[in-house]
Computed example of a mutant assay.
Amino acid sequence: MWKFIKKLFLILVLANILFIIFGIFFNPPITFTQLGGLIKYGKLQRDYIPYDEMGNNVKKAVIASEDQLFYSHNGFDYKQIEKAMKKNDKKGKVVRGGSTISQQTAKNIFLWQGRSWIRKGLEAIYTFIIEKIWGKDIILERYLNSIEMGQGVFGVEAASNYYFNKPAKDMTKSEAAWIAAVLPNPKKYDPKNPSPYLRKKHNWIMRQMNNIVLK
């Protein structure tokens, strides 16, 4: 039994190493989140595109909305994590997340959705590894290609076509900000029918985009 467990562990470690190396060159064939969307909504609308074909507007919008220190941190924004923990403790439930784009990428590519300590621990390990091995551009490309942006809609290219009938590289600043605005809850928010909250967030992202410099 012990030999079997040891072999299984080694196989899993090797598989993870190969998957991480694979991720340097290729987007994931499918993720747990995408599989969940396919099962729930009966569709998987996505179109992986290279980093250079995404356009700068959507990159700036997502960084402005999700992780403004993306280029300067090592995968973890400890101040945001501390703020999130304090706010969640005060409310007695999870009302704010402190995850960086790197952490979200690790979760989206390698793991599953959820808030268990096991998942969070694995997320931290994967985040550390991809920051060292992939680098910022690959992390951002994988994130923008895999992130859920609607019901069964994944990635900026599919989202741009779904909401605006155009490729991601042609999105205006305002359109890119709408895409970024839905990210906290893409199943709930809809740029085609924005709530007052979503309009307010859209305007905030538009202003923040002026401060984002792509590396």
Rank of each mutant, 00 (worst) to 15 (best):
K40I: 09
N210E: 13
M209F: 11
E175W: 02
T127L: 02
N88A: 07
V213G: 02
V13C: 08
Q113A: 15
I17Q: 02
Y163D: 02
E148V: 06
Y163C: 04
R96N: 04
D47A: 15
M1R: 10
I133A: 03
G152E: 10
P184S: 09
E53P: 05
P167E: 08
L122I: 06
R207D: 12
A180W: 05
I21C: 02
L35K: 14
W134P: 00
N161K: 15
K201E: 14
Q45C: 11
N88K: 06
G150R: 07
K83D: 09
A84N: 05
N203C: 05
M209H: 11
G36L: 11
A64I: 03
R142W: 07
M206H: 01
V58K: 09
Y78F: 15
A181V: 09
P28G: 04
I21R: 01
I63W: 03
W178A: 02
S116P: 09
F70H: 08
W134F: 08
D137F: 10
K192C: 05
T172E: 03
D77V: 04
V182D: 03
L122W: 10
K201V: 15
N161C: 08
K43S: 14
K136T: 02
R96D: 05
S116R: 10
I109N: 02
L8S: 14
P184H: 08
S160G: 14
M209A: 09
I133W: 06
D89S: 14
Q34R: 15
F4W: 13
Q103K: 06
S72Q: 13
R199T: 12
G97M: 04
Q45F: 14
Q113V: 09
F22K: 11
Q208F: 05
E53G: 10
I20G: 05
F32I: 14
K87Q: 14
I30G: 07
S116D: 10
L35G: 13
D190G: 11
